[in-house]
Design a protein around this nucleic acid. Structure first.
Lengths: 329, 329
DNA sequence: CCCGATTTTGATATCGGTAACAACAGAATT
DNA sequence: AATTCTGTTGTTACCGATATCAAAATCGGG
């Protein structure tokens, strides 16, 4: 920058102004500086800028695993909005482990990110403490927690699960099984289960522990769930999978066994990925606002950071979801 | 840091040493400093550190689109290795556009990233110029270009495509169609086409432009490709889709039409995602080392950055792929 | 017990910018 | 014409760390 200043015959301050607040500089200076910048091929050092101004244009994002199509939509929403304002995304994976998450939060804080986006809503006490102390704005994304850290942009896993279960009930299914990922350390799974149970109650159906299944990730897990539930409750007439991979795995298993879906058993899924629309039968599912979550998250963070919109502190945005009825129910 | 130094009754230099080169500090000082750090809850300012040491622990990654399962595997490989060395990943999407890529490269350079990972192997002249000038190590990932920017960790799209086409030929298929994404501005697609054509020649088969199709992204595009090729060349007996989404879309379309795969038409795919193993019939595909690419890329970058391994400059790592024979051929 | 070698610690400049305020010029006000 | 205001540019200090080299402490050998 010094070089540019010398070449343009001005002070570094003027150069800095041309680059950041062009309005405050006279036409002539602006031109001189800009040509000097071009001639030298000068690239501002963003580190120095952030350090000196105590402002950062990077946002830290922690997802359980990048390797999951549902996060990528949110990431896309985030990154598209952030990019427009010249913000950058730092992404890390916690591997579904709160301790790992804490570690990453520490790293991000020491990088002095301007804001933090967390998919998980379960954090270690130390992580919470550090975030509080840092004072930077945070958005939680994966669920609507009872005690938000700061801001929340999400849909309600409980409500969504409730809605789908009610949908199945209204269609006349009476033996509705529910499959989810392991719910320990995963309040998303827990809330989905709660929604399911609440709906059963509303429908006047008896909950049956044999029809509440937990399993791991992957298509094979979906297949396994089908096998398990049929084994213990042969009269089951619907299976609600709280995860699109499970649902597809379940469908494939049904096809393998030659069962008609939905005649022998109906299938419903969480999270409306493209695939569900194209398998046959197409699978009834919940359209969740994955992309919108990213977009809104970015917007609300930027408001806080750029405009200092302190009234947004602690705000909770509950985005809508939708039940998509298809051939599988 | 000043606070920590005062509290421990030492200079800031000693604090810095305790944190970065503990070996060079006496036992006593180390303890005093560490307790002070703990008591104050001090978090080093990484920006300041990078600025002053002129070393950076962030790596910039540019992918065409995050929203694509094949990149996420590579990202996972990258991030896992980098994390172990305390490096961070900055990720951005170029949207398959070289100009956008150039823009992002500029941003990353001004963030003074320690290294750059580019999926695309096509860049604007200005982008190349800027990277050269910056002197930071770069790895290209998506293909093995004729003129690498610096280092390359990839598999050969041409070779992989050749191998699969030969495989189909050896199985006895004679009317092998080839479908890929639009190849303008996409040398991966171009190379895949070259491999296909080279294999046809080797097999003594006539290339037929009606059996070389280009299309967009998505399952629907796969379906459309099937319709198109059958229409113009009814006697086609195999379809090689250079993309797993296309292949799955094609399979679904065949199922919808009630065609037996592989009897009516055989299907083969690029990129062995999990789904291909679980559909029925399972789809023959190419297992590409997506995760390994990320891992190796990270390793080679770290060698350059940390160990200053200059002999690695310009090295090209050609990772192996594998043809996975399944039911669809 | 002293001296040079080695290790440990500290003082200072610096990395590349921006904040805050001072200085100055020309325009507007009276 | 003197005074105040407004807008533009420059000066200086500082952001929070590390590099560099000097100073002090420790050590071993003669």
């Amino acid at each position: 920058m010094r070089d540019v200043a010398v070449r343009a015959g001005v002070s570094t301050m003027t150069v800095s102004r041309v680059l950041n607040e062009p309005g405050k500089v006279s036409e002539e200076m602006r031109e001189r500086v800009l040509t000097a910048v071009r001639e030298i091929g000068y690239l501002p050092n963003h580190l120095a800028g952030s350090l000196s101004s105590n402002r950062s244009t990077t946002i830290g994002l922690i997802v359980p695993s990048i390797d999951n199509s549902i996060y990528t939509q949110t990431i896309k929403g985030l990154s598209e909005v952030l990019k427009r304002s010249g913000f950058q995304l730092m992404i890390a994976e916690s591997g579904y482990d709160p301790n790992e998450e804490e570690e990453l939060i520490t790293v991000f804080l020491s990088h002095r990110v301007g804001g933090l986006v967390l998919h998980s809503t379960e954090h270690t006490p130390q992580a919470i403490e550090k975030i509080r102390k840092s004072g930077i704005p945070v958005v939680e994304n994966g669920n609507i927690p009872k005690e938000p850290l700061d801001m929340v942009v999400s849909y309600s896993n409980r409500d969504a699960s409730y809605a789908m279960t009610m949908h199945l009930g209204r269609l006349g299914y009476r033996k509705i099984a529910f499959a989810s990922l392991y719910s320990v350390h995963n309040d998303r799974s827990q809330d989905r289960l709660k929604g399911y149970l609440a709906a059963l109650k509303q429908l006047g159906l008896e909950p049956d522990s044999r029809m509440v299944l937990e399993t791991g990730r992957g298509l094979a897990a979906g297949a396994e769930v089908v096998a398990r539930v049929i084994q213990s409750v042969p009269e089951v007439d619907a299976l609600f999978c709280a995860g699109e991979v499970l649902a597809v795995g379940a469908l494939f298993e049904c096809q393998r066994r030659g069962w008609s879906v939905p005649r022998r058993i109906a299938l419903a899924s969480f999270d409306d990925v493209n695939l569900l629309r194209h398998v046959s039968p197409s699978i009834t599912s919940l359209r969740l606002p994955r992309y919108d979550i990213g977009e809104r998250t970015a917007r609300i963070l930027l408001s806080r950071i750029i405009d200092g919109a302190d009234h947004l502190r602690g705000s909770v945005v509950d985005l809508k979801f939708e039940v998509i009825q298809r051939e599988s129910t």
